[in-house]
Design a protein around this nucleic acid. Sequence first.
DNA 1: CAGATAATAAAACGAACGTTCAATTAATTC
DNA 2: GAATTAATTGAACGTTCGTTTTATTATCTG
Lengths: 199, 199
Amino acid sequence: MARTAGSDGERTQAAIRDAAVNLIARYGYEAVSMRQLAAEVGVQPAALYRYFPTKEDLLYDLMTAHMNALVASWETARPATGDATALLAAFVRNHINFHVERRHSTHVNNMELRSLSRDRLSTILRLRAGYEKELRQILRQGADAGLFTVEDVTLTAMAIIQMVTGVIVWFRPDERLSVAEVTDTYHKMTMRLVGARNA
Amino acid sequence: MARTAGSDGERTQAAIRDAAVNLIARYGYEAVSMRQLAAEVGVQPAALYRYFPTKEDLLYDLMTAHMNALVASWETARPATGDATALLAAFVRNHINFHVERRHSTHVNNMELRSLSRDRLSTILRLRAGYEKELRQILRQGADAGLFTVEDVTLTAMAIIQMVTGVIVWFRPDERLSVAEVTDTYHKMTMRLVGARNA
DNA sequence: CAGATAATAAAACGAACGTTCAATTAATTC
DNA sequence: GAATTAATTGAACGTTCGTTTTATTATCTG
């Protein structure tokens, strides 16, 4: 057999992306074989190569999509007006919501960086650095305005990023806490962490 | 050839553990082959199997050693007297010092859990849960004594753990900051995060 | 110094890996 | 409705994987 009835390139490609994110998040990039992925999609292994020339191309595609979506998400959510306290609140809320909604691709982006070639790793890290810079600017602005107590902007930014991204490690929706409750508590903790005067 | 001059089982086993931690931390468990590991140790692949029956046995050995060392480290460092504020300060200091000193094995323990069998995963997670329980008890004690503001003990414990463990992701000694400076800043941030009244 | 044991080498096993290529069929175009 | 293009299959490629087996040599024991 060859082309199957009702087959559609775009749908197949989307199905590959979807299955890949789920499998890689669960078993890890190296542990997932192209055969396993093809079986999950319901296709022969060779068919994957029509859409992604190599396994690493597929991984890179998933990671760039994730990072671009994250940056775009903050661009949309960032308040046009407001002081550093308002900005930081919006940042934390957006960050947690985005990552909880995309647990699997977040996992892939955090765990599989070492499977990228040098150039591609650099590109992903550059996107990430740009996003983190937004947080540092908020912290600096708050410190300069006398709203925050921040010993070291870079260090505090990393601490906050690690803390809020860590939500996806343990949090599962439909449990004891709702996303809104978690976001709310993290917001309060973040405000205390930076010693916000007007939170 | 066979047994080499000056060969010693204990030294070889230690060399295997050491090389394995470094290689797995850098390239990932799945990406490191037994041949690559043997080459790093300076031995033939078959020799590894005298010390570790399977590749997974080796991984499990590294992980249990790490977790046992962590628990033992806190047992030694925990103050015999002192209120929740003193306990939390000691916990954060010990946690950061331990993990910075053992960056590579921490990385292995955080990244390679999914390569363990179910039973072994359970064992590691149980050790980890016991350690995290110590932090929750400190937080509860501080909250009950009116020293801390804690919205949710479990959630705050996870936030603190993620924040302080995250140090190893970006921190490299011999840089802009010393370990002591980093620990000091994290201590202050933690105290503010829990709203400590007497820090 | 002989015998036992510990430590390793050398070679091979079958299985699984990422990937390629030619053939084949479905859908689209003219 | 014939020609073209898109989508996929089926089979195979060479390589690498974790692991096992057997032989060999160094060291230790009495």
